[in-house]
Design a protein around this nucleic acid. Structure first.
Lengths: 203, 203
DNA sequence: CAACGATGGCTAATGACATTAGCCTCCCAG
DNA sequence: CTGGGAGGCTAATGTCATTAGCCATCGTTG
C-alpha cells in the first residue's frame, strides 16, 4: 500500500503533506465507513499514516474536526437539495427534494447527522452553507405562496419530518417489514397536502 | 450531605445497598441533568458514592446501562402518551399526544433520545414498553379508520415528525426567533389534516 | 548558496474513561 | 456460629484526547 511506503519515507524525514482540508475529507470518509460514533482522531491519523498528535497541526481537536465535517456535509446537502429543486415546482419539487435529502442521508450515514449541528457564526462558509440548505426549502414554499412566519413554520415542519424519518430509519426504529419507501412517500405527500392550504390546515 | 456520611460509613465496611434499578434511575437522572453525552459510569459511580468498578456488580457495562435507561424511558414515554390519548379522539387526541410527547422530551432531555433505541428482544419489559408506545399511536389512528399497512405508514409519519421536531429543537436547529410552539402546532395540524384522507393525501 | 525561521512531523507525558481481575468483608442461610 | 455468595474495594490495562516540547524540512531571504 502507498500508505506504508509513505510512512517509511517519512521515517527518514519526508513529510506527509497534510492540510486541514485533507484531514476533514478523510474524517468525513471515515465517518461514513465506520459510523460517526467510531470517528476518532486516532483512526483518522492512522488512515492518513501519521501519528495522532500530528493532526493538531491542522485541526484544533476532535470537536473542531467534527464541526468542520459538519460544514462540509452541510454544503454538500445544500447543493444536493438545490439541484433537486431546480426546474421543478410544487408537489414535483417537494418530492424531488425530499428524495434527495433522504438519498444523501443514506449515502453518507456518518456525516449526515453532523448536518444538524449549528454553524459557528465565525465560520462564514458554514453559515453560508446552512443558509443555502434552508434556502432550498424556502424556495419550495414560494411555489405555495408562503413567506414570513408561515414559511418558517413550514420549513421547520419539513425539516423535522425529513430529519426524523431518516434518523429513525437509520436507527433501525422501523421494526415492521412494511415498505419503508412507501411510508416515506406517504409522509411527504401528507406534508405536501398541508402546504396547499397552509397555514390553516383546517381549511 | 448524606452521601459523604454514607461513604465514610462504608469505608469502615458498610455497604452502599445498590441495586440495578437504583443505578439505572440515577443514570437517568444524571443524563437529564448533564446531558446524555456526559452520562458516564464514572459520574454515576460518584453520584452513588461508590467506586466506578462497583457498578459492574449491577450492570454489564456502559452500553448495557444505556440500554436499561432506554427501557425505563420508553416505558415512561408510553405511559405519558397513553394518558394523553385517554378519553380523546381524532384531532383532539392527536394534539394531546403530540404535546405530551414533546413535553416528555423537554422534561427529560437526557433520556429522551434513548427512547429511540431498539429494544433487545431478550429484554421483555423493554419490548413491551416499545409496544405500548407504538400502541398509543396506533390507537389514535383507529379513530381515522386506519389499520394494516396504512396504519404503519401513518405511525411512522407521526413518529418521524415528532422525533425530528424535538431533536432539531433540542439541537438549537431553529435559528429564527419565530414562536416554536406555534410551529409545532402547525406541524401537528398538518399531519392531522393528512390523516383525515389517509392513505390518499391527494383526495 | 547558505542560513533562518516557520511549518509540520515526531515522542513523551498526562488525564479521563471503560473494563477486567482478584481481594476482602458483610450478612444471611443453615 | 459458620460458610459462602453478594457487593464492596484496589490495582492493572488499554484506548483516546490533549498538551508540551523536540527536530527535520523547506521556502525565503540575505
Amino acid at each position: 500500500m502507498a500508505d506504508a511506503a509513505a510512512t517509511r519515507a517519512r521515517a527518514r524525514g519526508a513529510r506527509a503533506g497534510l492540510t486541514p482540508s485533507l484531514v476533514v475529507a478523510e474524517a468525513a470518509r471515515l465517518a461514513d465507513e465506520v459510523g460517526l460514533d467510531r470517528l476518532t482522531l486516532a483512526a483518522v491519523a492512522q488512515r492518513l499514516g501519521v501519528a495522532l498528535p500530528s493532526l493538531y497541526k491542522h485541526v484544533r481537536g476532535l470537536d473542531a474536526l467534527l464541526q468542520k465535517v459538519s460544514a462540509l456535509a452541510t454544503a454538500e446537502l445544500a447543493t444536493v437539495l438545490a439541484e433537486a429543486a431546480a426546474g421543478r415546482s410544487r408537489a414535483d419539487a417537494v418530492h424531488a427534494v425530499a428524495d434527495a435529502y433522504r438519498a444523501y442521508a443514506h449515502q453518507h450515514p456518518g456525516r449526515y447527522p453532523l448536518t444538524q449541528r449549528v454553524a459557528d457564526p465565525a465560520d462564514l462558509e458554514h453559515v453560508a452553507a446552512s443558509g443555502r440548505a434552508v434556502g432550498a426549502i424556502l424556495a419550495l414554499l414560494r411555489g405555495y405562496g408562503l413567506s414570513g412566519d408561515d414559511a418558517v413554520d413550514a420549513t421547520r415542519a419539513l425539516r423535522a419530518a425529513l430529519h426524523g424519518f431518516v434518523m429513525l430509519e437509520h436507527a433501525g426504529g422501523f421494526g415492521m417489514p412494511t415498505d419503508v419507501n412507501r411510508s416515506f412517500g406517504q409522509l411527504v405527500a401528507a406534508l405536501e397536502l398541508a402546504l396547499r392550504t397552509w397555514p390553516s390546515p383546517e381549511g
